[in-house]
Simulated scan of single mutants.
Amino acid sequence: MSKTAILVCAGTALAAVAAPSSASASAIARPQSPTRVVVDCFYHPQVRPATFLIACADGNNYLTSLHWSRWGQNAATATGRDVVNDCKPYCAAGKFHSYPAGVRLDRVRRWNGQSQHWQYARLTITYPGARPADTPRSMTYPLWS
């Protein structure tokens, strides 16, 4: 009888000591949802940017007026305007034209080896109506990392 009482008391004490430890360990071990970002030309991570430069070298193509309807774990979607220089007769003398565009970001991967940021690595632009000359209805670009 005394052996049973000792075992019950020891088991109860062990359970009391272990419960807070395992509860706090599970709270610590539970990872927060990593931030999804799109990386710009200057390697700055952005979340839901209002504008996004596509042609980094010369600035002749960029997205503006972006309104994000989704910024999820696997993809982000927005509507906005694609502003493109026609480069006629050459880019420095060209005119900028603006086109309505749907934007999708996807192909999520770890950014620059940092666990707190995951980046969208691909950009797809879809034109619902007018679009730049010699441009298909949908264009896909790999993004910087």
Rank of each mutant, 00 (worst) to 15 (best):
residue 108 V to L: 07
residue 108 V to E: 04
residue 128 P to E: 10
residue 99 Y to P: 07
residue 127 Y to K: 05
residue 120 Y to E: 10
residue 117 H to A: 02
residue 97 H to R: 12
residue 118 W to A: 14
residue 114 Q to E: 12
residue 132 P to T: 01
residue 125 I to E: 09
residue 125 I to S: 11
residue 131 R to V: 06
residue 127 Y to L: 02
residue 118 W to S: 14
residue 123 L to G: 05
residue 107 R to A: 11
residue 97 H to D: 10
residue 104 R to F: 00
residue 131 R to I: 01
residue 115 S to L: 02
residue 116 Q to T: 13
residue 124 T to R: 13
residue 134 D to L: 14
residue 106 D to K: 03
residue 125 I to R: 12
residue 125 I to C: 11
residue 118 W to L: 15
residue 107 R to E: 10
residue 105 L to G: 03
residue 125 I to M: 13
residue 98 S to H: 00
residue 107 R to G: 05
residue 127 Y to D: 06
residue 123 L to R: 04
residue 115 S to I: 06
residue 134 D to W: 09
residue 116 Q to M: 12
residue 125 I to F: 13
residue 99 Y to K: 09
residue 125 I to V: 15
residue 116 Q to H: 14
residue 120 Y to I: 13
residue 128 P to F: 15
residue 110 R to W: 03
residue 133 A to W: 13
residue 99 Y to H: 06
residue 127 Y to H: 10
residue 115 S to F: 07
residue 116 Q to I: 12
residue 114 Q to Y: 13
residue 102 G to Q: 10
residue 110 R to Q: 10
residue 103 V to E: 01
residue 112 N to C: 00
residue 132 P to L: 08
residue 99 Y to R: 08
residue 129 G to P: 00
residue 122 R to P: 03
residue 98 S to R: 04
residue 131 R to S: 06
residue 134 D to H: 15
residue 134 D to Y: 12
residue 129 G to W: 01
residue 108 V to W: 02
residue 133 A to S: 15
residue 126 T to N: 09
residue 132 P to I: 07
residue 131 R to L: 10
residue 108 V to G: 04
residue 113 G to F: 07
residue 106 D to P: 04
